[in-house]
Structures are given as C-alpha cells and as structure tokens.
Design a protein around this nucleic acid. Structure first.
Lengths: 109, 109
DNA sequence: CAGACAATATATATTTTTATATAATATTTT
DNA sequence: AAAATATTATATAAAAATATATATTGTCTG
C-alpha cells in the first residue's frame, strides 16, 4: 500500500473529491455494464440495448451521463451513434473490479 | 483489458451489482478519506477526527456504515475503539485510485 | 422532394436514496 | 458517579434514479 499519510489534508481532500466523482459515475449497475461492454468494443446504442436488455430511454440517459462527464466518446455513422470509452482512468478502475468480481473461481480467461 | 464479453448477462449483472455495491460505499468523500487513513494504520475515532477534521458524530456515522458493510473492523482498547480495514477488495480499489489521483505529478513517494 | 420509418436523444414528473446536522443516548474506564 | 469516547435517532435537505412521453436527426422510398 502506498503511503498517503504525508499528504496534507487539503491535497487529500481534493484527490478524494476527484476519485469519488469518478466512483459515483461507476456506482450504477447499468452504467457499469455499459462501460464493461465498451471496454471490449466500440458499440452503437442498438447493440448495447440488445446485449444488456436495457430499455432505450434509460440507456440513452445513462449514456448521456457518461458522455457529459467524459467517460465515453461518440462517433456518428449514418443513423447509428457509436460509443467508446474515453477515459483511461475509468478503464483502469474497471480492470481492478474485473479482477475482484469477475475473475474469481479459477476462471483464467 | 480482460475479455468479459463471453459472460452471460445474468452473471455479469450479478458481478456488476456486487461491484457497484462496493463503489457506492467508496463514493463518499469522508468515507474515502477515512479508508485512506486506515489503509496506513489502525486508528481510533479521536485520531481520525483530528487528522481529517470531521465532526465526531459524522465520523461515527460513516464509520458505522463502513462497519455494517464489513469494510472496516474494530478492536476496543480501554476507552478507545480502533478501526482498521477489513476488506481486501476495498484496499485494492483504493490502491488503484491512489495511482490515478494521488501519485501523479512526479511524486514518487 | 415529401412522407414514413428507424435510431437516438431529451424533457419532465415522480419516487427513492443518500447526505447532513443536531440532539440524545450508550459504554467503558477511572 | 464522572469523564471521555463513541453510537444511535431523528428531522431535514439534496441528489439520484426511474418511467413515460416527446423530440430530433438521418435515411430511404415513391
């Protein structure tokens, strides 16, 4: 574990604020699933809807949250809008969580 | 990035539920700061209060949340109650966040 | 080009959850 | 019993989540 005790409280609070800001965005089941999908491939809304079984307006709303906060980026292709991860920090947290909650039980995928 | 696309949606949802459950607990500035302190040392409430400048009842309330959810464990010594981290998963997420939000700017501590 | 259709986004209202502050109470040691 | 420390209860405020309805944008057909 890294030693954070030397940091003054103001600095720590600032970092904690940033960190919790990111965590709040990730701490939502649908958004988490969206990001997991997007960590594997760029996908359009319809594909996400099909894979996750989330109703379109909910989907679009959560994608909107992620977009406004910079966690995902988009690209339009005809009537489809493709989403991809746009924040490497989110990706790294996702990776840690994968190790903790998905990889257990000898699944060495 | 690990490949999660092969997991069926039910399994993914279950894992996402667990993961977001943990994240919700971490996505709170005071709780985050508490856990950061406790990642370095076992501390009693008074010490936490002094280090973080959080009012005692707020502190106790958030410690209560963390305790009920198993993220921290306690030990009594006289009139003091010492807290320590009780969930290795929390520790690992904290470590990732430290790398992303605290270690930047050439701080090689 | 108008009109229809398909994909995605936004707005709004409602409910639920979470946070915050204060006050009151409990526990343990001396 | 008193002092120090910690916990719980309660009320209020603020923030998120959810569902439903509606709007926008682009494409294709006749």
């Amino acid at each position: 574990m890294p030693d954070t005790t030397g940091l003054d409280i103001e600095t720590m609070r600032a970092a904690a604020g940033e960190a919790t800001g990111l965590l709040r965005l990730l701490a939502h089941e649908d958004r988490m699933l969206l990001l997991c999908q997007l960590s594997q491939a760029e996908l359009c809304v319809g594909e996400l809807e099909e894979r996750l079984g989330i109703h379109q307006p909910s989907l679009s709303q959560q994608l909107g949250v992620l977009r406004r906060e910079g966690l995902v980026e988009t690209r339009r292709e005809g009537k489809h809008i493709y989403y991809r991860i746009g924040d490497p920090r989110a990706l790294q947290v996702l990776e840690t969580l994968y190790g903790l909650f998905c990889k257990q039980n000898g699944d060495t995928r």
